[in-house]
Design a protein around this nucleic acid. Structure first.
Lengths: 377, 377
DNA sequence: TTGTATGCGTTATCAT
DNA sequence: ATGATAACGCATACAA
């Protein structure tokens, strides 16, 4: 296309190797460091322009004439050059890196949130760096510090149950951040997510509306987990308004597995007190275990017992009975969080955050409460 | 503890602000750029040593006397300093970044692989950057280029069905890489994973051994996916050895969902040819769908039909019947891949790769084939 | 053991 | 519109 003699210039450039006379004339006789990779100045030389111009071609294209721009772009392609991120970061004081701390990748809801953020950031040339805390606040703090060292421009952390030092560090270094997954109107942080408390209020009221008065709860570990705590609080507050409470024997706390769900139902069913007519689970995994164990114990669902989950796993729709649950678009949460942070970086002053709705999906596993034995005919 | 007068030195340092006389004496009158954050030279000044010494304290501690080391460490803490990654990367030509490209985070097997790699790399101070290709070779290539720009020191990519340019780029820039998830002895790449072909040979032989002679297959999209292609090839090769093949009507290719599994069984059962006695699925999701639809259609499992999956999802053990499947430790694959790459970076010349075993878990969903109608009593 | 001086690859400032 | 050159924050070869 262009008549520019790249071949010849390329030759000139390539002959300028360390063992050529040109190299011998180099300012210093020291051993050359560096990666040996093509650098911006090589492109400048080949294109016959200054390094400043090459830089402009990629950062402020409008300020460069079309002819020169094309020459530079050709040279860059010919040399297979791309900018070195470290050099860029150092000179521009912009790292083009953002970070996210999640509890674990084993949980689909966090994995999809990462996907959403990554997609949104990538569209703006920002690389997302991921850290997992394994539900350990100390690890979360370490990860955040590592990310600050990397020069992250923005951060997202799941939940707000973190050491104050974590948020202090973020503020000290003026790194915009957002709390994701959880949402509270009166949170001191910008947050993007849903209201765990309200979601479980809604679910509890669904069951209350069906006539249930005796509840059991199977839930993930509440320690260091504000989302789970909020869910439990939502259940308790709603029951309390109706003069009800969860018996200690009917509150099981344990890992998010089918096995835990099964164990829990067995222990609840064997307890010496009155059996619950409904079991609310912290998520679908646990609920699936309860459903499975009910089958084993010959408990009719929902005739004898109603069961609810959270997350709306695909398998929940395939079970018999199908599982009543709630769905949250976690991919969307990730996208919104990234968008929010990008807005802050752009100097816009966006909302305090963004609330995503948790949607109740009523299916077969929840139904009217059996008439309580104590309620006279 | 230390009698070193940090307070005083800190004061000196802090008084050395831009509007102080000291600042006025600065070599240049230009506007100062930079982040305004504490930098290494601040620590050096406060500790009363040269910048080289501060650097040594963190990179070659042995070369620094204990007294000086302590002074520097105190100063760093007092100033809340930590090294800037971009500066480090530029000066040392080591980025301390590694990358991994996976198809999607939606699949647990890739998510856990990322976890394993991240843990292993983090233990060595290396940050893992994640990229998702969405099963698109073009996206994978773009991601790899972005990572090269970031100066990744090592890379992992899932599978080997990638554009040659991808591997060319990696080789051109001398970035050690490994293909994960898939393993072939005669692969041109270092690979850490399992032999998809062999795994499905084993599964097929399990069914052959049970007397099955008529097979259907429900599998994920084979396009651009060498792992899935290998699985299908393993089935075909094994059947062929027994003079068998999968009828076109009995080969369903589609997305990895329960819904696809259900659709597939329905279409297979409605086909006008002889019905299969066994259905092999590309993974557990699909198999769960088949199992569910079989229940709907009143097909006895395994009496009338055997079903197998792959991945060993927890739910598979809770189904009735329980699902015959294979398990691979993908977290381990991630860890081994990271270890392999670290070895290469350390100058060790490790094995060509590492093979992980896929373990067959025979459960209730696979059983003896019903006596074929054509086999005379 | 410690300090001095220079370079890493890019961007930004200023001058032309 | 383009060029010359000084930062950016740190590490390292070499001198002391």
């Amino acid at each position: 296309m262009s008549g520019f003699p790249f071949r010849r210039l390329l030759f000139q450039l390539m002959s300028d190797t360390p063992d050529s006379p040109a190299a011998a004339r180099t300012q210093t006789s020291r051993v050359r460091r560096g990666t040996g990779r093509t650098v911006l100045s090589d492109v400048a030389k080949l294109a016959g322009v200054s390094t400043a111009t090459v830089s402009r071609v990629y950062n402020e294209p409008d300020k460069v004439s079309a002819a020169v721009r094309e020459r530079v772009e050709h040279a860059a392609v010919a040399l297979n050059w791309f900018p070195n991120a470290a050099g860029r970061a150092l000179a521009s004081t912009r790292s083009h890196i953002a970070g996210i701390i999640i509890p674990t990748l084993d949980d689909q809801v966090f994995a999809s949130q990462v996907s959403g953020m990554q997609a949104a950031f990538a569209a703006r040339g920002i690389t997302l760096v991921l850290g997992c805390s394994n539900y350990d606040p100390a690890q979360a703090l370490v990860q955040v510090r590592a990310m600050l060292a990397r020069g992250v421009e923005a951060m997202a952390v799941v939940g707000e149950a973190h050491p104050p030092e974590l948020f202090d560090a973020l503020r000290l270094y003026r790194v915009p951040y957002a709390v994701t997954y959880a949402y509270r109107k009166d949170s001191p942080h910008d947050c993007i997510g849903f209201d765990n408390f309200a979601a479980y209020v809604q679910m509890t009221e669904h069951l209350i509306g069906l006539g249930h008065r005796s509840f059991a709860v199977c839930i993930q570990p509440t320690r260091d987990n504000d989302r789970v705590q909020a869910r439990l609080a939502g259940i308790r507050a709603t029951l309390e308004r109706h003069g009800l409470a969860v018996r200690p024997e009917h509150l099981c706390e344990g890992e998010s597995t089918i096995a835990f769900g099964r164990r829990s139902l067995r222990s609840i069913w064997q307890a010496s007190c009155e059996r619950p007519s409904a079991i609310m689970c912290g998520n679908d995994h646990i609920a699936l275990g309860v459903l499975r164990e009910a089958q084993e114990l010959g408990i009719a669902i929902p005739g004898e017992l109603s069961v609810t989950g959270f997350d709306d796993l695909e398998i929940g729709k395939a079970m018999r009975p199908t599982l009543t649950t709630m769905r949250v678009d976690t991919y969307e949460i990730g996208k919104l969080a990234a968008q929010h942070l990008l807005d802050v970086l752009d100097g816009k002053r966006p909302q305090h955050g963004h609330e995503v709705r948790a949607v109740l999906h009523i299916r077969e596993s929840s139904g009217p409460a059996r008439r309580a034995a104590t309620a006279g005919g």
